[in-house]
Nucleic acid binder design. Structure first.
Lengths: 248, 248
DNA sequence: AAACAGCGGTTCAAATAGTGAACCAAATGG
DNA sequence: CCATTTGGTTCACTATTTGAACCGCTGTTT
């Protein structure tokens, strides 16, 4: 791997649940020598992509990332353009709706509008969702190029519940359904008792950049409701795609 | 410079005003060979820190940055903790107040609360402010270690208006005033007709992490007003510092 | 209190990864 | 339509990266 790749993979070790990590730990997890890890960290720190807590000497992500992210968001305002549509979809369906962007082989939850109902599905911003096992993921795969799909399906897939689809055939069927109808459907594929409808959001090149998903308690959804949610999801996703590509 | 440093300096070429740049341009500005620049861009793209617009083939900052920035912001919630204090300070003074974080030798504007008055100072989120020439910058320097200050003052300093302080002696005096009183004052140092009061916000190690600044039309400020604003700015900055370090 | 284990950090010869001049083909633009 | 510039590629050369062994320090265990 390139030196730059190694440096970035150090950054990717930090998560919401573990935002500060020590040198030895960092090196171990990245599969690097301590000396190498340190040199890379110093290079990153010189540009404020990494900061070191002076007391504990542990490392954390730096302010430069906030700065760069702001520049990007100003130019590619995925969340800003999508948020109103997501909100409206949530009001229309009465369910929790969330927006995800594809990043590094998975979907990253960027925005959530919670249902007003007492019995609702809760989703956290920042949560990372797998491509299989979530309605969002299936919708994303259905909109992706074939080579991307087959590359993803080759790897062994983790089962999150007893209902998670992990077999290539089952997944192919779900993807085919999503490709045909524009939306995907998943019952308890990622969490027990949760039903989801997903739809892909396309960028200016026609490739999917992310997804939106309507998440309901399973008890509230039958085939008729799912169909209606599917139509609404497709409409919302198309509207966001249009805004992204400057068509609206 | 390290390879990683070169890669990051490529990222830093993107700005709010120029969010997409072509390969040759990028290489030229970074002082790198085209082949080198491309290899670095590819390494960054593999981790989604860079994206390439397929149509124009130009490069832009990638979604991975948004993801990493979110992780950082969740852990080091500078803006989240400071925003309410900034808002209150704006209401109290009736003027525009903005929050900046130090990054890569300058102050990055992260949050703004605009004055309700018709005649007000407008500041953009994302704007990069120099350390000299702004009240924020002077306050930041006054709270920094001496070696940081002298390193900064060694370089030639740009004048933004006829009133910008660029001489080492003038700046030293302004810094001494800020160090003694806790706040800094600047008249038209960065923009004509704008008066600013700045105060530094300190992190858990006692080093400044950023600043807040009250910006008023020059016509509305005399010495008495400036003094009152200074006291208010210091109080607000201390409150944010305390929240950051978990003392409140 | 002594021995230990782990930490962050450093060194330098050996090895690997990075570099850039010269080269395309394709897209601009005068 | 020709000149220029673009994004992209190649490969011999070389400078950067690498990691085992080494500090000194801190906190824990015996």
């Amino acid at each position: 791997m390139s030196t730059v790749g190694k440096a970035v993979s150090l950054l990717e070790l930090f998560t919401l649940h573990e935002p500060e990590i020590g040198l030895s730990d960092l090196a171990r997890r990245a599969g690097l020598d301590k000396a190498t890890a340190r040199r890379l960290l110093m290079a990153l720190a010189a540009h404020r992509l990494i900061e070191q807590e002076p007391r504990s000497r542990r490392y954390r992500l730096g302010a430069g990332l906030s700065r760069l992210a702001r520049i990007r968001d100003a130019h590619f305002p995925f969340v800003r353009l999508a948020a109103p549509v997501i909100r409206e979809l949530s009001l229309e369906t009465g369910e929790t709706v969330h927006l995800s962007e594809f990043s590094a082989g998975a979907l990253l939850t960027l925005h959530v509008e919670l249902s007003a109902k007492a019995n609702r599905v809760n989703v956290d911003v920042g949560q990372v969702l797998p491509l299989h096992g979530t309605a969002s993921g299936i919708a994303f795969l259905a909109a992706s190029r074939l080579e991307v799909v087959s590359a993803y399906l080759e790897k062994p897939l983790q089962a999150f519940t007893a209902h998670t689809m992990t077999g290539p055939d089952t997944l192919a069927k779900a993807i085919a359904f999503a490709a045909a109808s524009g939306y995907s459907r998943s019952s308890e594929g990622y969490e027990e008792g949760v039903h989801s409808i997903g739809a892909a959001i396309l960028g200016s090149d026609g490739q999917p950049v992310g997804t939106l998903s309507i998440a309901s308690p399973l008890s509230r959804v039958d085939d008729a409701v799912a169909g209606a949610q599917g139509q609404a999801a497709v409409r919302a996703a198309r509207m966001i795609s249009a805004r992204l590509t400057g068509e609206a």
